[in-house]
Design a protein around this nucleic acid. Structure first.
Lengths: 255, 255
DNA sequence: CAGTGGTCTAGACCACATG
DNA sequence: ATGTGGTCTAGACCACTGG
């Protein structure tokens, strides 16, 4: 009785390790696991043996084993679920996403592979950041929309969108039909829009973000913020996006 | 005999911790240290007491203390130097960098605060990536230039630039005068250039990058790649930049 | 040399998810 | 009830850096 993952790991552990003083043991283990992830020997959604088991296989303590596993989790290759096990994250290599295009267009992938989950709409008051970006009065009423995009079942993007409530009185009704923001725009007399500013930066996943993206908390992420405007230049949407650090590559081309 | 840092930490440790079951001890410690970094109570280049000492102060094992410190290192707030001590990383905060502008212009800071270090030029053969970006034959001769930018003494950017050797026969001579790539361009009949493509992605610092940026190895970083072209559209420079994840924010505005 | 951070071990208890 | 990952401890040895 030995599943494929355990056999593979035994193979990784077979080669002797470099003596002390060169590379730390946990790093050598992590390196071998990582190369196995990268070349597909550890494939998507595969479940690894338990930590104690793996520690035995590699001939180290559980603590040392955990250090190796922790690095792979931080880099998004593995995902641990408490009480369940450790899984190979079905990795999106890296998606090229062109600036200013719609999410799905930028990915250049068939729509079947993309799934969108929408969380319930919420009303609220604009935060200072939002008020400034949307050119609203402080505390002005806004509509908040959260969305999660999955690619081949793996979450790759959470978006928190904020809209000025005054501008979109029939938001919920229009959005609900097809889960489409574009529909809302059109229904309120905005046939097209422009991205007037995009920012890209890095950060670390908050617990909720990590849960949504199925990442270990505090995992590094890429954050994008965009402001959309109607043809007249008035801001109509503030979009805060979070991506697993290794999941996306933004491509910006000269016009 | 007790320096300022130790006193501050004793203050942080004074408040009782939440009982087990709520937040892990190491996370509570990390949170307190982080807020102390963020609001300046732990200021730039300050040296912390040793790990054993800090572990005593917080009443935990050295292992637990190290977990807390590890998180702050990964997030770029602290920097450990083996055999020396742990230091507060001087004010990385976050710099707005506008796309398409020169490094120094984008930062909108006085030149005095910016220092550039140039590593020795190297000749070499184009890698596949470089050959494609620069539209060269495989293995074509290229010139490699590495630069490190420091802001207020803290390294915030390493750039690895690659130029087609055939296009810049007098590269070394021209560059050496003022360490300016623009000088090289002008001397070879290129009065201005355009950025034809920029990519932004995330990764993890290789050992050399980490050393240059004074980061803990494997720290998450932001990577930018840009291709410059002459007015005729011919690629003349391939630029690979690495930033500490928390040090930079790219701002892209509509033309 | 003494002090520092980096690595590693052996064992323990807990909260959680699953069967 | 079992096994999982998450946390924590107490002690040890090493390599590096500084005075």
């Amino acid at each position: 009785m030995s599943d494929a993952a355990a056999d593979l790991l035994r193979g990784l552990a077979a080669e002797p390790f470099q003596p002390r003083g060169s590379l730390p043991l946990w790093q050598q283990i992590a390196d071998r696991l990582q190369s196995a992830c990268d070349d597909g020997r550890l494939a998507g959604d595969m479940r690894l043996p338990g930590e104690i088991r793996m520690a035995e296989i590699f001939g180290v303590t559980r603590v040392t084993m955990r250090r190796a596993l922790a690095r792979l989790q931080q880099e998004g290759k593995l995902q641990a679920r408490k009480g369940v096990g450790i899984f190979v994250r079905p990795i999106p290599l890296r998606y090229r996403l062109d600036h200013g295009r719609r999410f799905a267009d930028g990915l250049e992938l068939p729509d079947e592979r993309i799934v969108t989950q929408t969380l319930p709409l919420k009303d609220g008051a604009a935060t200072p950041d939002e008020a400034q970006a949307l050119r609203l009065a402080p505390q002005a009423p806004v509509i908040r929309l959260e969305r999660l995009r999955l690619l081949d079942g793996a979450p790759v993007y959470v978006a928190a969108k904020t809209f000025p409530a005054a501008r979109f009185p029939r938001f919920a009704e229009c959005y609900g039909r097809r889960d489409s923001v574009r529909d809302v725009y059109e229904a309120h007399g905005i046939p097209r829009y422009e991205v007037i500013e995009t920012r890209v930066g890095g950060g670390f996943a908050a617990p909720e973000e990590a849960a949504a993206l199925r990442l270990t908390p505090r995992t590094p992420v890429l954050r994008t913020t965009a402001v959309n405007a109607d043809p007249a230049g008035a801001p109509i949407e503030y979009n805060l996006g979070t991506w697993p650090l290794t999941a996306v590559e933004l491509v910006l081309r000269a016009p």
